[in-house]
Amino acid sequence: MFKRLMMVALLVIAPLSAATAADQTNPYKLMDEAAQKTFDRLKNEQPQIRANPDYLRTIVDQELLPYVQVKYAGALVLGQYYKSATPAQREAYFAAFREYLKQAYGQALAMYHGQTYQIAPEQPLGDKTIVPIRVTIIDPNGRPPVRLDFQWRKNSQTGNWQAYDMIAEGVSMITTKQNEWGTLLRTKGIDGLTAQLKSISQQKITLEEKK
């Protein structure tokens, strides 16, 4: 169930391209415009997507990853294993993690069937560096609404905000991946996880038929 919630949630996290980005210092504006741009692209490019579902990787690479804190999220997933990894191991892992996100997020976007969304009203940021933004996803086919909290983090150097995690039903996506990959990290280390991520990233994206 959580895996499905995570995939549905990713439908609204794909941010804007650099040329049309919203105010990078306001995570609420980023979330709002990102959702609108993403849904528009999914709707307008269905012919290309249906002809070649792996085209979704391109959308992810162009529109999402430049505005997601990939390395920060990847380091959180590694936890204690990050500090013990060599620079070469980290570089290989982050490259594999990025390719994994292209496949995983692309597969999530393949679930698009006309969903709509509501974003919580903007709250004062103050001096906060981590801000959760509640998004409610509404399914046109009558499924119950899904309420999610996207975690946005302020870059201490640039002042810009980027998304790095999502919490559904009190469970963090980062925590879920830590639990899912924990045994592999304990037995085969970061190299074993890197190899698995490379394998997963090679899987073809498949479209979910409308139910």
Rank of each mutant, 00 (worst) to 15 (best):
F94R: 11
G192A: 15
Y72L: 01
I190A: 06
Q123M: 14
L5V: 05
D149E: 03
A51S: 13
W161K: 01
L10K: 00
Q178N: 15
I167G: 07
P121S: 12
W181Q: 12
A19S: 11
V70L: 05
N141Y: 09
S172P: 04
R147P: 02
Q107K: 05
A14G: 11
A163C: 11
A21G: 10
A92C: 13
D139N: 15
T116G: 14
S156C: 02
Q157M: 13
S172M: 00
V60Y: 03
G182I: 09
A9N: 00
I167H: 06
Y105P: 00
Y28S: 11
L30I: 02
Q196H: 13
A9G: 06
T206F: 08
E33D: 11
E208M: 13
P144G: 08
A108Y: 04
Y81H: 09
Q203C: 09
G114Q: 06
L16Q: 04
D32E: 09
A163D: 14
G192S: 12
N179H: 08
P15R: 10
D23G: 11
N160A: 11
P47G: 13
G170K: 00
Q48M: 15
L101H: 15
I205G: 09
R4W: 09
Y100C: 13
Q178L: 01
T136S: 10
E63S: 06
G189N: 06
P27W: 01
M7T: 04
A34K: 05
M1G: 00
D54K: 04
N44F: 09
A195I: 10
D32G: 09
Q80W: 04
A108E: 04
A110N: 15
A195P: 14
A95T: 11
L76Q: 02
I49Q: 04
I119R: 11
T187N: 12
Q157W: 04
L16W: 11
A88L: 10
I138D: 06
K188P: 06
L78I: 03
K198R: 13
F2E: 00
L197C: 10
E99Y: 04
G126V: 07
P87C: 08
E99H: 07
E209G: 12
M7E: 00
G126T: 10
I119F: 09
M173I: 10
Q123F: 14
Q69W: 00
V60F: 04
T206L: 10
F150E: 00
K177N: 15
L184A: 10
Y117L: 05
A88F: 09
G182Q: 15
I49M: 09
Q46R: 09
N52D: 12
N141W: 06
N160F: 11
Q89T: 05
A73F: 04
Q115P: 03
T206K: 13
T20C: 13
L78R: 02
D40Y: 10
Q36D: 06
L16I: 10
Q123N: 10
E99L: 07
M7S: 02
L11M: 06
V171G: 00
M7A: 03
K102M: 09
G114S: 10
T25L: 09
V135S: 05
Y82N: 01
M166R: 00
A104N: 03
E99R: 03
G79V: 01
K37C: 04
Q157V: 12
A168W: 04
T20N: 13
Y112Q: 03
Q107F: 10
N179P: 00
D40C: 11
G192P: 13
R90I: 03
V77Y: 11
P145F: 06
T25E: 12
F97I: 12
Q62L: 06
R153N: 00
F2Q: 01
M31R: 00
E208G: 13
T129H: 08
R41K: 09
P144R: 07
M7F: 07
K128E: 06
M1C: 00
I119Q: 12
Q103E: 10
M6R: 01
N160L: 07
R147A: 02
Q118L: 12
R50I: 15
G192R: 07
L10H: 02
T175C: 03
E99P: 15
L184C: 12
R50K: 12
A9F: 13
A35T: 10
I190G: 05
L76Y: 04
I205M: 15
L185A: 12
Q89S: 11
Q80R: 14
P66F: 03
G192D: 14
L148S: 05
Q157E: 04
G142D: 05
V12K: 00
E169Q: 05
P15E: 08
F39C: 01
E91L: 11
R41S: 06
V70G: 13
F97H: 15
G74V: 00
P15N: 10
K3M: 02
A95V: 11
T116F: 15
I138N: 09
Y112P: 03
H113F: 04
K211M: 10
E33S: 04
T183W: 10
G74N: 00
M31Y: 08
Y55T: 14
D40F: 05
Q178G: 07
T194A: 08
T38L: 12
T206I: 06
R153V: 01
R147C: 04
Y117T: 09
Q157G: 04
G189P: 03
I133N: 02
M7H: 01
G126L: 11
M166F: 06
S172D: 04
L42A: 03
A35S: 13
M166V: 07
N179Q: 05
D165I: 00
Y93Q: 03
P66C: 05
I130F: 04
I13G: 03
D127S: 06
R57A: 13
E45K: 05
H113Q: 10
N44W: 11
Q115R: 02
L109P: 02
A195K: 12
M7V: 06
A95S: 11
L30F: 05
G159K: 10
L64F: 13
S199H: 15
L64H: 00
M173S: 00
V60T: 14
A35H: 03
F39Q: 00
Q36S: 10
G170N: 01
I190V: 11
K204S: 12
S172K: 02
A195T: 13
Q36C: 11
G114L: 06
T176R: 00
R186D: 00
E208Q: 14
A18G: 13
Q103G: 15
G114Y: 05
S201G: 11
I200P: 14
L76N: 01
L193R: 04
I49Y: 06
G192N: 15
P27E: 02
M173R: 00
K29L: 12
Y164G: 01
M166T: 10
I137L: 06
L78W: 03
E122P: 12
K198P: 15
Q202H: 13
T129A: 10
N26H: 07
D139R: 05
K83Y: 02
T183C: 06
A34I: 05
E99F: 14
R153C: 03
V146M: 09
G182N: 14
L11F: 10
Q118R: 13
A21M: 08
R153K: 02
G79N: 03
P47M: 09
K83F: 02
I200W: 02
V70D: 10
Q123I: 11
F39R: 01
A110E: 13
A21E: 08
W152H: 04
G192T: 10
S156V: 03
F2K: 03
I200V: 11
Y81G: 15
E209N: 12
T86W: 02
A21Q: 09
A95R: 10
Q48A: 11
V135R: 00
A163E: 01
G74I: 00
Y81K: 11
V12C: 11
H113I: 06
F94C: 07
S156P: 03
V68H: 15
I174E: 10
T158C: 09
I200F: 06
A95L: 14
F97T: 08
